[in-house]
Design a protein around this nucleic acid. Structure first.
Lengths: 331, 331
DNA sequence: CTGAAAGCGCTTACAG
DNA sequence: CTGAAAGCGCTTACAG
């Protein structure tokens, strides 16, 4: 392994001079030495040792991406892949490295961040309850996404989940629907709850209701489609908390001999390309996942460069994308 | 930050004794000290500094996952997400950390591996040509997936892509099809080429042919569906190199007023859940992506524990999953 | 513009 | 079972 010392010896200078060249502090080194050193570095294939660098500077150029869960969700939907896929190049462009962690136990977070002296962290998924503890234990920039923690000084990039629910409800109502159901996955997550709340509040504001037994947890109930088909009070409109869920539901309903949107109308959430590939094309609430990821990464770097930057909470808009999965009912 | 030294001082022992406890070398420390030290560690919330550890031991517990491309492919299909989602928990269970790299320039690989003293690496995607160079430059275990490099000592976990093509061809022929097309994405990748080769060879062995202008690169041709519909010599059977591609194709054909499988029959590749959610349910060549990921991770750790382990090349089987996207043509 | 010294927090390799 | 010493490859903080 080639070290600074090796380069220094060969160039006839001290390690400090080589260190300055490696770190781009070129104004502090003579042109002659810069050139000589750069040539030797190239010739020898010198790669700086990041572990040594981190140890002595007490900080690393590692950004940790902390994903909630054991990976099951990661493999199932494109949401996490889109987030991570967007963040990685962003991090790399800035000369940083990305560590990926799956977290099922909050206590692991601080340990994983500290052991590598991570410079910043981006959280993907639901980390509502322990945000405060995580923040107390870590002094590096922590950017949450989709968090509904009530901690005041939190940096978060989220979307208007509530509005998503509102838009879905309004759309169903406009199309003449009068009976509704909500299907959520990971029902305990605030995101899923907010979408539900926006949906329910809006229905009620218009004089309709969402029966509590029409709110289904797709994670608990094995066959959501069957449950919906056997409602005592039948429904025509179903709002699903994700496109993935909506697409599965459409498929399951079809297997039960039901047609979408003729028997059941469905609105999804996310706006992934998938939704426009299926038949009927899925009406959905669109969120800009890539933008969310990019903003989260931006904020991390802003706070790394200027730790005094204020905590900011960003809420991205959502919009209804009307396609073919909601039928118009004449009233 | 709490260090070994702090713990040692508080326990009234040397850093070495603490170090032994931290590293689980409990047989070398008195029970009394073990207990005392463990309590202090817990009380102080001591977290070992991995950068210091790596520097002094000249090795780290980092596994690098190297993904080919700039992330575009990562965000588009569940393939990479499934691979990564499977590998992460596996790596974490063993007390290792995972770094994720997107690579568009081969030269970056060695630099990224070396700078962190990575202990091993798993490659996802096409790394055919530079395998030899990568191997020469790095002495840690390198596990490739889906590589068709001819380097002899390569560790690779792949699938029988050729057989996938064979199965698709046979199925089409059995169902009475006589005219064929192949749609591939990233046509330059060996994986896509092998699937094509198995398909073409089998067609020819049965007295049929695959015209070269019926081989389309989905990455280059904007509207593959339209191209297929305007073939001078029409086809009835289309083999797509991935499920994602097949699903898009079905959607595009539908937009052109064509029906699957009535006008065109389609076979995909991968066997993702998605394929059984759409209508018609997609007939496809199934590969066990999760298994591929797990085996790749297993091999990395086997070679870390025993560097003298022989290079092994594993080829997983594939199978045809018959669903509804291939029509029977009476002959 | 240059460099000598100290130190980051561990582990390795000994000695006892 | 225990510990003192040296060193991993850098950076920080000075001094000149």
């Amino acid at each position: 392994m080639v070290t600074l010392k090796d380069i220094a010896r060969e160039a006839g200078v001290s390690v400090m001079t080589v260190s300055r060249v490696v770190n781009g502090q070129l104004s502090k080194v003579s042109e002659e030495n810069i050139k000589k050193i750069q040539e030797i570095i190239k010739k020898r294939g010198y790669v700086p040792n990041s572990t040594a660098r981190s140890l002595s500077s007490k900080s690393s150029n590692i950004i940790s991406v902390i994903v909630q869960g054991d990976g099951n969700e990661f493999k199932k939907s494109l949401y996490n892949a889109t987030m991570v896929g967007e963040i990685v190049p962003y991090v790399q462009e800035r000369g940083y490295y990305l560590m990926l962690h799956f977290i099922t136990n909050y206590d692991d977070i601080t340990q994983r961040l500290r052991t590598w002296n991570a410079r910043g962290a981006i959280f993907i998924g639901t980390f509502d309850y322990d945000v405060q503890k995580i923040q107390q234990d870590n002094s590096i920039p922590l950017v949450f996404t989709d968090s509904y923690s009530h901690v005041r000084q939190i940096i978060n990039v989220g979307i208007d989940d509530y509005k998503g629910g509102v838009l879905a409800a309004k759309h169903f109502i406009e199309k003449g629907h009068r009976s509704f159901a909500y299907v959520g996955e990971y029902m305990e997550s605030s995101v899923v709850q907010q979408r539900l709340k926006g949906f329910k509040d809006t229905l009620e504001a218009h004089g309709f209701s969402l029966r509590s037994d029409h709110i289904l947890d797709g994670y608990i109930i094995k066959d959501t489609a069957k449950a919906i088909c056997s409602f005592k009070e039948p429904v025509t409109a179903i709002f699903a908390s994700s496109d993935t869920l909506a697409v599965s539901l459409i498929s399951d309903l079809r297997d039960l001999g039901k047609k979408v949107p003729d028997d059941y109308s469905i609105i999804g959430f996310d706006g992934f390309p998938l939704g426009s590939l299926i038949k009927p094309r899925l009406t959905t609430i669109y969120q800009d996942v890539a933008k969310k990821a990019r903003i989260a990464a931006d904020i991390v770097f802003r706070h790394i460069e200027d730790p005094s930057s204020p905590a900011e909470s960003i809420v991205l808009d959502v919009q209804l994308v009307e396609r073919d999965s909601v039928k118009t009912i004449e009233t």
